[in-house]
Design a binder for these strands. Structure first.
Ligand SMILES: NC(=O)c1ccc[n+]([C@@H]2O[C@H](COP(=O)([O-])OP(=O)(O)OC[C@H]3O[C@@H](n4cnc5c(N)ncnc54)[C@H](O)[C@@H]3O)[C@@H](O)[C@H]2O)c1
Ligand SMILES: NC(=O)c1ccc[n+]([C@@H]2O[C@H](COP(=O)([O-])OP(=O)(O)OC[C@H]3O[C@@H](n4cnc5c(N)ncnc54)[C@H](O)[C@@H]3O)[C@@H](O)[C@H]2O)c1
Lengths: 206, 206
DNA sequence: AAAACCTTGTGATTTGATTCACAACTATTA
DNA sequence: TAATAGTTGTGAATCAAATCACAAGGTTTT
């Protein structure tokens, strides 16, 4: 049940606020003003306040925001009060690095299933995960509540793999392949492509 | 010499157009209309035309865009008619995957220097690159024309490493650490943080 | 307890991006 | 050649986002 009235660009900033609030909490801070947060997060204080006001009044006038309280609220808004199990498809260079990455689990995202097509990779264990044959996707996903997939196969396999994932109930894909996926309404895709970012940067390099 | 009159959001879409045009070229296409391109890239045709018109009239009325010609122009606009040498700092799980990634070199981005602090990693060779001690950053960067850095150190080392890179002439940083870097004007940063993307996605998952 | 100060939350305004609508031009068909 | 169809490029209009300005309410100081 999404709230379609809230601009996506506002939603996209919430994780950033959450990240910075978590840093502040670890540093022992208890309260933060929108001005201080603005300084840390690099977004104007008034925009932070306006963004938050879409979801409620979390602050105290004259004082600021109780960090724990605001973190709780943001986590609730972003549906982070649960562990999100994830499947990764394509256990090559990048896939292995992602499976080993501690940062996902730390934020409640857990890779519980790893699939590949290469017989030399299938059956190997990486950070406690035994890689399965991608042919078993059907049974593996059917008997799970996995709704998020990390897609790290080569570009030419990405669309067909994404189609298969969606056919088996995946609702969100974090796509690392340098290709634009065409997927049905209701499935959300986010892309991570460092080359596009670099090409954006070079525009500004003389 | 950037053109400060062109909206950054327009610039950010050009690499996407370029990527899709390259796909079309590989498929043997010679000409494409903004409608066809729109279909592939998922951006309205009129927006593509308006974006391109910031830089000139590249199309032919009644026909469309000559793909090779448009690719040439976009590459020139984005300063891609050269090899961009890059340094990577932090050769752990992710750093190694990036060094092995073929996709950078294929688009003219070449990792030519890899730095780490761990004696067990320094001196090892990955995809033809021998990892150097991060202490040698000064000499290594001074005698090079590297202006782009990939930052793949742990979060707690990211700010100080970025500061050192900037002190040694780096002008653009692709930051993989889950932290917001504070850097002087004139240095451009792009962030890649999969956790932020996932937290954005989960907002829409029921 | 009053005064001074601080900070939020938000309606109004401004700024910026997208979309509309169509003239201009090219290519194709009859 | 004339008519028809296709497609770009762009000013004008619309829509969306960011910023301004400030009232309201809380906190701190005296
Ligand atoms: N390596 C990186 O740092 C990096 C960075 C950005 C993007 N990418 C992208 O991520 C993807 C993976 O890159 P990589 O460097 O890990 O490549 P890789 O070749 O090392 O790994 C790809 C893996 O996918 C598996 N695979 C191939 N087809 C499959 C299929 N149909 N089903 C399941 N598994 C399949 C292969 O067996 C292999 O293990 C590519 O699309 C690449 O462009 C990689
Ligand atoms: N692994 C992933 O898939 C992944 C994904 C997204 C983001 N990240 C981020 O990328 C960074 C690296 O992640 P990782 O999984 O490769 O971690 P890692 O621990 O495997 O690698 C980090 C490397 O950095 C080196 N290092 C530490 N301090 C250094 C310093 N001051 N100078 C130079 N080198 C130094 C370490 O020796 C190590 O080799 C982290 O910030 C992480 O949050 C990783």
């Amino acid at each position: 049940m999404a709230k379609p009235n809230i601009p996506d660009i506002v939603v996209s900033r919430l994780p950033l606020y959450l990240q910075t609030l978590n840093h502040l909490l670890r540093e022992g801070e208890e309260v933060v003003s929108s001005d201080e947060l603005s300084e840390k997060v690099g977004i104007p204080a008034v925009q932070i306040r306006k963004d938050l006001s879409f979801f409620g009044g979390f602050g105290v006038k004259g004082k600021g925001y109780d960090i724990i309280h605001l973190i709780d609220n943001l986590r609730s808004i972003l549906n982070l009060n649960q562990i999100w199990p994830m499947v990764i498809v394509g256990v090559g260079n990048l896939g292995q690095a992602l499976i080993r990455y501690q940062g996902f689990a730390r934020q409640g995202f857990e890779i519980v299933l790893a699939l590949d097509i290469n017989p030399n990779i299938i059956g190997t264990e990486i950070a406690g995960i035994v890689v399965q044959d991608v042919e078993t996707m059907d049974t593996a996903l059917r008997s799970s509540d996995i709704r998020i997939a990390l897609l790290t196969v080569p570009a030419n396999a990405a669309q067909s793999t994404a189609d298969a994932l969606v056919a088996h109930g995946i609702k969100a894909i974090l796509n690392y392949a340098p290709i634009i996926l065409k997927l049905p309404e209701g499935v959300r895709v986010a892309n991570i492509d460092p080359v596009l970012k670099l090409e954006h940067l070079t525009y500004y390099l003389s």
